[in-house]
Amino acid sequence: MVWLVTLDELLLSQAQELRRGTTVLACLTLLEERQYGYALLETLNDAGIPVEGNTLYPLLRRLEKQGLLVSEWETDDTRPRKFYQVTPQGALARAGLTREWQTLVGSISQLTKEKR
């Protein structure tokens, strides 16, 4: 019983590890259209890519620092919101990451097929 719990926890943390890189790709894809943090979080969660606010918000800031996103404060709404959107640089990064992702999916499915 104890062992099962640890396995579950192990799986959870390993799955998180797997998801970590995909969050960046998902953000770069979704932010083709400008969006603010919380709305992006909702969209990601609805799309089946669970991500926590405490991961997403610092990540957006980091991607902006790296020049992959631009941001703009908008004050029209009920409260001021920071909207993010991909830069041309970000679009290039997205294309590269997408290729990488597809190669990875191909390789892994090939591997798991062989092992079966």
Partner: peptide, 20 residues
Amino acid sequence: GARDEVAEELRTAIADTIEG
């Protein structure tokens, strides 16, 4: 240097979450 901006972002995000 990043304090004011992070504070503003966080406040908005938390308010959005509460509202959501």
